Simulated scan of single mutants.
Amino acid sequence: MAKAKKSRASKQDYLSPQQLVLSGFESPFSNQLLATNRWVMLANNIPWDALVNTYNRQLGNKFTGAGSINPRVAIGSLIIKHLCNISDRETILQIQENMYMQYFIGYSSFSNEAPFDASLFVDIRKRLTLEQINEINEKILAIIDKKADTDKEQASNDMNEQDPMGNRQSAEENVSGQIKDAGEPPAPTHKGSLLMDATACPQDIAYPTDLNILNDAREKSEELIDELQSNLSTVKPRTYRKVARRKYLKTAQKKKKTKKEIRNAIRQQLQYLKRNINSIH
């Protein structure tokens, strides 16, 4: 029986982003890719050279043995998979059908073939250690933070150009004065029913069995007796709290309880609770 063929990864070499130009991407629809597309913008902001160097450190001697998969194809496919939150097979299909994703992973032209077999994702994840993943994340986050600082500085410069004489402060004072004159905000007009899902419950809520409820009630009655006795000069009545607690735990901590044991434990707790209630009265 012939073995099923696997579409393995192509052995194309890695090209630095400095050598891959957007206008050089040969689209099958005879038009250029949009520079405002999210994958094109993301590809231009990611430090591919630094990520590829981090990835290549795990390959060992690349001059011996079969050639490895293009590092940008491997890293870019992982980024697409986690950004879109899709499976390994769906990631390969999306890349095969989307020319923007192919540009993101470093292709110079559109291809109808899959970049590699979906089973190679397992080998790629095994190859990247936790330290390398953290290093890749730090490099990407550094680019994002730098871009955010640049946008913030640009927005501040634009605001200063629009208001060079400091009229912004007077405008804010006028707005604050209008808010004070308006008084309290009007009450919300939207109404409706709130639907809540109780499928996820906190773990600290125990199942309400009769024995547990009686034990809680007994402990509350003992606290009430202590509170009342502290304000009176009478002798504190006997509650047998230690004996009651010991008998409760003797039954409650058993993994398997018979009906007779449960009935006896419930009867005992009822008797202690009845005695405490009489003392309270």
Rank of each mutant, 00 (worst) to 15 (best):
A35C: 05
I143C: 07
V73T: 09
D151C: 15
R89D: 13
K6W: 10
Q32A: 13
K236W: 02
L120Y: 13
L51N: 05
P115V: 00
N174V: 04
A4M: 10
I80E: 07
N278Y: 14
K250P: 01
A43T: 01
I179G: 08
N160I: 04
K152F: 15
L270D: 02
F29V: 11
F25L: 06
S156H: 12
K11L: 15
T91G: 02
I144A: 14
S221N: 08
L20H: 03
F63H: 12
V21C: 09
I225Q: 02
K257L: 10
K81Y: 04
A198I: 04
D149H: 14
I95F: 04
E153S: 09
E135F: 14
P71I: 13
E219L: 13
Q154F: 14
Q178F: 07
D49W: 00
P208E: 04
N85V: 05
K191L: 01
K180A: 06
T251K: 10
D117A: 10
S77C: 11
S193D: 08
T239D: 03
A217W: 00
I143P: 01
R168K: 03
A198T: 04
L15D: 10
V175W: 10
S279L: 06
T36M: 03
T258P: 08
R267K: 11
M101L: 09
E113H: 03
L33Q: 03
I79L: 12
M101I: 01
R275Q: 06
R245E: 07
N137Y: 10
N37G: 01
K256D: 08
A2R: 05
P115A: 03
H82L: 06
K147I: 05
L42M: 10
A217T: 03
D216I: 11
D145W: 04
I205D: 00
D210T: 13
Q18E: 09
I69T: 14
A2D: 08
L34N: 14
K191C: 00
T150C: 03
S233V: 10
P71H: 06
Q271W: 04
I205W: 03
F104M: 00
Q19C: 06
N278W: 12
N160D: 06
S170K: 11
Y207Q: 15
D13Q: 07
S68Q: 11
L83V: 09
I69A: 12
A171S: 11
Q132H: 09
